[in-house]
Amino acid sequence: MKTKLKGISYSKYGYLFSIPFVVAFLIFTLYPTIYTATLGFTDCRGVLNDDYHFLEHPFENFKEILKNDSFRVSLKNTIVIWIANFIPQISIALLLTAWFTSHSNEIRGKGFFKVVFYMPNIITAATVAILFHSLFNYPVGPVNDILVSTGLRDSSYYFFTSKTASRLIVAFIQFWTWYGNTMIVLISGVLGISPDIYEAAEIDGANGVQTFFRITIPNLKTVLLYTLITSLVGGLNMFDIPFLFLSGGPDRATLTTSVFIYNLAFSGNYIYNRAAAASMIMWLLIAFFSAILFYIMRDKDQIKIDKEIKRAKKEAKRAAKGGVNQWQW
C-alpha cells in the first residue's frame, strides 16, 4: 500500500530543489508576463511601440474589450467548441483507459492501439488544418463525394459557409488530435496505482466495470484533476487549429479568444494594449474556472491525504520499531 508521510524537517531542500525552476521562471515567464500585463494599462499600439504611457483611466482598455462584440462572440465560440470537443474526448479517453488497463478483459494488440491513438498529436497543426480543409472541400472533396455518391445528399454541401458545421469540424479536429494524449496521461496514472489494490479487488470478486469505478477512478483522481485543468486551460486558449483551419471564419464562427487576441496584436493595427487587456481578462476567467475545479476535486482529496498521513505515521512507527524496509508495490 502506498503511503504518504508528512513533510520531513528537511524544508531547506524544498527551496533548494525549486531554485532552477524559479530562476528560469523569473527570466523567461514572469518578466514577459508582467511586461504584457503592464501594456494593458497603457496606450501602447503600433509596430514601433517604444514610446507609450500609462492611461489616465487605467481600466479603459479592459472596458473597451468587454464592450467589444467580437470578443464576446469569440468567448462564446471558445466555450462551445471546447465543450463539444472535451466531452467526447474525456469520455473516450476514459473508456479506452478502462479497456487497456483492464485486468479481466484483455484486449489483444492494446499496445499497438495505445501507441497509434496518440499519433495524430505528433503532426503539426498546420498540416492537420490543410488535410481537413481538403477533406471537407466544396464543391468537390472526399467527404462531399461520399455524401453525394451514397445518396445522403443531392448536391455538395458547403461546409465552410455553415457556422455550425465549421464549429463541429473544429471541435472534431481538437478531439481527434488530443484524445490520444489524454488517454496516455490517464493510462500512466493508472500504471501508478499499485497492482496490490487490483489483486485485492479480484479476490473480492469485483468485475471489470466495478473495478474501474470503485478502484481506478478514485485512485486516478489527482491525475484526472491534471487532465481536467490542462484541458480547460488548453481549450480556453485554443489557437492553432481555429487560426490555421478557417482563420476564425465563417462569419466569426470559429473565432476563439486566442485568435481574436492574436489578430488584435499582430495582424493589423498592432493594438497591443487591448490585446494585453483581453489576455488578462481571459487569464482571470481561466483561473476562476480552474479554482472551481480545484475546489471540487481537492476537498475530498485532502481528507483522504490527511487520513493517510495518520495511518502512515502509525506505519512508520511500526516500521521504525521492526526496522523493516518496506517495499510495498
Binding site: S70, T161, D251, R252, F260, L264, N269
Partner: peptide
C-alpha cells in the same frame, strides 16, 4: 445565410472590433 444589410453591418463590426 444573411441579408445584404446584415453582411455590411457585420463587416463593419468586425473591422471595428479587430482593427479599431
Amino acid at each position: 445565410n444573411k441579408s445584404r444589410e446584415d453582411a455590411i453591418k457585420d463587416f463593419k463590426q468586425e473591422v471595428a472590433d479587430e482593427l479599431d
